[in-house]
Amino acid sequence: MTTTASVGAGTDTGTGVNAGTCESTGTRGSAGALLREWRERRGMSQLELAGRADSSSRHISFVENGRSRPSEELVLRLADRLDVPVRERNVLLVAAGYAPRYRQTPLDDPSMGALREGLERLLTGYEPYPALVVDATYTVVAANRGITMLLDGVAERLLAPPLNAMRLTLHPEGLAPRIRNLRQWRKHLLAQMERQIALVRSPELRALHEEVAAYPVARAERPEDEDRPEEVPYLALPMRIEHDGHVLSFVSSISTFNTPMDVTVAELAVETFLPADPVTVKYLRSLGP
């Protein structure tokens, strides 16, 4: 398999936001205050949370205002009901006086060999269609030849490790000039990042969003390049990109791991690009192995 970045490359702590640079690695107050913040983020009342966690609203109130120290089991149960990211669950545990529960294993660790092999098989098996694996800040940790094909013409400096999927896509020297519906696709990607920022604490992700949102967007050369009716009734917003004189259309799908027990694994995402029309299917298959 040809990869733009091999699985496990370019990461110090496995994947995701590196330890020491993420807000979640620092002390931000008591466990009760943190739990209250997560509850409010989820738009949940104390009564609703208590019902979901098999507790009482009175006990939840006592935990949040510091009058009661939650047990380790309760911290984990509340974190589960609030859908707190694995990295942040460690923060809650430490704030409550307990040891972190979830490891953060580097992807190049021998214990991650089965995971690496599985991801590589998945990416290779998806060829000739594009697919890649990214971490919590869109650093590319692995990609197949379908992705490599789309990178033709991208500025060399953007291809220097560590590769970042958002920069590669939206930078004026990246894929952006060849994306026919750039304004639509850019709006989709920025909204995706904004949803993540609303759910997790990551100054790196916030800084990346500010960076790519500030990239200039060139005016479309032809009116039909943006928001024009399509002959094919797409079921999801496609990315329409030029390649070697052809316009290819892809819809993307993002997959994550269920019930991860490791921070690294929790922050990995596999994005696959499915051809959105017969023209794209025929062209990719014509390229051969």
Rank of each mutant, 00 (worst) to 15 (best):
T3L: 08
G8C: 08
A9S: 15
G10W: 09
T11L: 05
T11D: 11
T11F: 09
T11V: 06
V17N: 05
G20F: 02
E23N: 09
T27R: 15
R28H: 15
S30I: 12
S30M: 12
A31V: 14
A31T: 10
G32Y: 09
A33P: 11
L34K: 06
W38Y: 15
W38S: 06
R39M: 07
R39V: 08
E40P: 03
R41K: 14
R42V: 05
Q46C: 10
E48F: 07
A50M: 04
D54K: 13
S57E: 14
R58A: 10
N65G: 06
S68T: 07
P70A: 00
E72R: 15
R77D: 06
D83H: 11
L93M: 12
V94E: 10
A95I: 05
A95S: 13
A96E: 00
A96F: 00
A96M: 01
G97H: 04
Y98F: 08
Y98M: 05
Y98P: 08
P100L: 07
Q104G: 06
T105V: 11
R116I: 01
E117N: 02
E120L: 09
R121I: 09
L123V: 05
L123K: 08
T124P: 01
G125N: 02
E127C: 02
V133W: 08
A143V: 04
I147M: 13
D152M: 03
P161T: 11
P162H: 15
R167D: 14
R167A: 13
L170T: 03
H171C: 04
H171Y: 09
P177Y: 01
R183Y: 01
H188R: 15
H188F: 13
L190Q: 06
A191I: 04
Q192V: 01
E194F: 04
Q196N: 11
Q196K: 12
A198P: 11
P203V: 00
E204M: 04
R206N: 12
V212W: 07
A213T: 01
A213K: 01
A218C: 02
R219Y: 00
R219A: 07
R219D: 11
R222Q: 12
P223G: 06
D225C: 03
D227Y: 07
P233D: 12
Y234V: 02
L235A: 11
A236E: 10
L237T: 14
H246C: 08
L248A: 08
V251P: 01
V251H: 00
S252G: 14
S253V: 07
F257I: 11
T259K: 10
M261P: 03
M261T: 14
A269Y: 05
V270Y: 10
F273D: 05
P275M: 03
V281D: 10
S286A: 15
P289N: 08
